[in-house]
């Protein structure tokens, strides 16, 4: 009798552990589904979390109030020290890589670190590794940023402009975000997000190469990186770099994360024979 009670107790304990494990697994699945935007419980009225609302964009990648603007604008704001600053982007003789960063985003931390480490190489404004293009970091206004945190992040030799207006003018969806501007033609030749500074440099280099070689920096127009066509020599991009380049191509075509065209309406679109 005693043995039966003991066995029953052990079985109940094991079942309890099993049930707790299943409930925990179920909760994690629900949490992941919720993050991906799958409505739980209230159907259509549930907000989509962490996914931008689907937006149809024009080819320039502009959104909202600036949907009509297809050309870049000069930037003005303040420095982290509070001084007034303006950066000429349009009509200049050089190209500019605008890096929209924030002090709080975890992905941005890698860029802040890279820019600090390369401070001596960047030489103030012009980045030799970017074909002579100029690097400018843009954060939001002091009222929307932590000056203390930025004070520990900003590179000593790189221009940093605090300007929420610039984020709006360039329709920056989130940070980090990069916009590559060709000054002589006053046009945006590429934009998108990236995970590492190496990826950004590689893509900018590729866009120079696409235009016609190492002397691309002296050309007046730059159509930007193009997709590799059949027969093109392999460009040896890694997986994440290909993904980033594809994202930039999609962004240039007006397709950003959340665009309805990226999602199938039903299972038949994905598996026509089912």
């Amino acid at each position: 009798m005693m043995a039966l009670v003991t066995i029953e107790t052990v079985l109940i304990a094991l079942l309890a552990i099993l049930v707790i494990g299943l409930l925990r697994s179920h909760a994690e699945i629900l949490s992941k589904l919720h993050e991906l935007g799958a409505g739980v419980g209230s159907g259509d009225t549930d907000p989509v979390v962490n996914v931008p609302a689907p937006q149809r964009l024009d080819r320039g990648g502009r959104t909202g109030a600036s949907v009509e603007r297809l050309t870049p604008v000069d930037i003005s704001g303040v420095t982290v020290g509070g001084d007034a600053i303006a950066v000429g982007v349009t009509g200049s003789t050089h190209r500019t890589l605008l890096a929209f960063l924030s002090s709080g985003c975890s992905t941005c931390s890698g860029f802040w670190k890279a820019f600090r480490l390369e401070g001596g190489v960047l030489g103030g404004s012009v980045v030799p590794g970017l074909g002579g293009a100029r690097l400018v970091i843009v954060t939001r206004d002091p009222s929307e940023e932590s000056i203390t945190a930025l004070g520990n992040l900003v590179p000593s030799k790189t221009v940093v402009v605090m300007s929420t207006k610039a984020w709006s003018d360039y329709a920056v969806p989130a940070s980090p975000y990069f916009v590559f501007v060709d000054g002589p033609s006053s046009s945006i030749v590429g934009e998108g997000t990236a995970a590492t500074w190496d990826q950004v440099q590689r893509l900018v280099s590729l866009s120079f190469a696409d235009e016609g070689g190492a002397n691309g920096a002296t050309r007046k127009t730059m159509p930007g990186a193009r997709m590799q066509a059949p027969g093109d020599p392999p460009n040896s991009l890694s997986g994440p770099e290909r993904e980033l380049r594809n994202d930039m191509e999609l962004a240039r075509a007006g397709i950003l994360p959340g665009d309805p065209s990226l999602y199938a309406k039903d299972i038949g679109e994905v598996f026509p024979n089912v």
Binding site: D74, G81, D83, A86, V87, G91, S92, T93, S186
Partner: peptide, 24 residues
Amino acid sequence: MTRLAAHSIDVELPNGWDGSIYSR
């Protein structure tokens, strides 16, 4: 044109110009 203003100094910069008003 980009407007730059600080310390009661105001300037409209032509396109492509850099500008800064600071104190040391």
